[in-house]
Simulated scan of single mutants.
Amino acid sequence: MPARLRYDGPLWRTLRAVDPDGVCAKVAFLSAHYGFRDAETPIACYDARLTQDLAERMIAGGMTTRWPRPRRVTVPTAGMHPGHEIASMSRYGREPFSDVALVGGRLYVTVMSAMVAGFQRMGCVATDASVATINGPIGRTRQDLRRWLLMSGNSRGDAS
């Protein structure tokens, strides 16, 4: 099942309520298990939490580290890396994102912020992109996400 439907936390419920057809934003997610992925990616149920150590390893790995990490070197296609995912979502830089929202808890926002810089270097996020950080008490975060999704604009970005 696609991550957009699999995840059922309050922010995902807000996303689906405000944008049920997925037309307001191209959405990606950051997962302790799957790394950075397009929200249309099918995922299985899992139980993993983002820790400070894992967040630091994701940041250090940059745009080319595959998540989940391959268990054996002989499996070169295990996992996907953030650079591949954002390149695909931005049509390989032909349609760079100009409006981005980083939504989630402190560690997630920290990792996503580091990724945005890498995505900008790749040309997949415009260097002058508007980057909103949506983080805080859950009620306020849900309101801010709703407001961001409903903003008018020609080009919607990546709600991570």
Rank of each mutant, 00 (worst) to 15 (best):
G83L: 01
E85R: 04
Y108T: 13
M112H: 06
V100W: 03
V103A: 15
H84M: 06
L102M: 14
T127C: 06
T110S: 13
E95D: 15
L107D: 12
S113F: 05
S130Y: 02
R94C: 07
L102Y: 11
H84V: 01
M80V: 03
A117V: 11
P82L: 02
Y92N: 13
T133R: 13
V131E: 05
M115Y: 15
A101G: 15
R94P: 02
L107S: 12
A132L: 01
A117C: 05
V109Y: 11
R91C: 09
D99W: 04
G104K: 11
R106V: 13
R106A: 15
S98T: 15
A117L: 10
S113C: 11
E95M: 10
M112N: 15
L102P: 08
A126D: 11
M115Q: 13
D99V: 04
M122F: 02
L107V: 07
L107Q: 14
Q120V: 07
V125E: 06
V116N: 08
V111C: 13
E95N: 09
M112S: 14
S130W: 01
M122N: 05
R121I: 00
G104E: 11
I86H: 08
G93C: 08
L102D: 06
M115S: 10
I86L: 09
G83M: 01
A117T: 12
D99Y: 11
Q120T: 09
M112V: 08
G93Y: 04
G123C: 05
G123S: 05
S90K: 04
L102E: 09
A129Y: 02
M115F: 15
R91A: 13
D99C: 14
G104Q: 11
C124T: 04
M122R: 10
T127F: 03
F119T: 03
A126W: 00
L107M: 14
P96M: 07
S130C: 07
D99F: 08
A132R: 09
V125R: 04
R94V: 02
A101H: 07
P82A: 14
R94D: 12
T133N: 03
T110D: 12
V116S: 07
A129H: 02
I86W: 04
G104N: 08
G118T: 03
D128V: 00
V116A: 08
V100F: 06
P96W: 06
A114P: 05
G123F: 03
R91E: 13
S88L: 06
A87T: 00
Y92I: 00
S88W: 02
G93H: 06
P96I: 03
V103F: 12
S113W: 03
H84R: 09
G105S: 13
A132S: 15
M112R: 07
E85S: 11
M80Q: 10
G118R: 05
A117D: 12
Y92W: 14
M122W: 00
P96V: 04
L102V: 10
A87Q: 04
E85I: 01
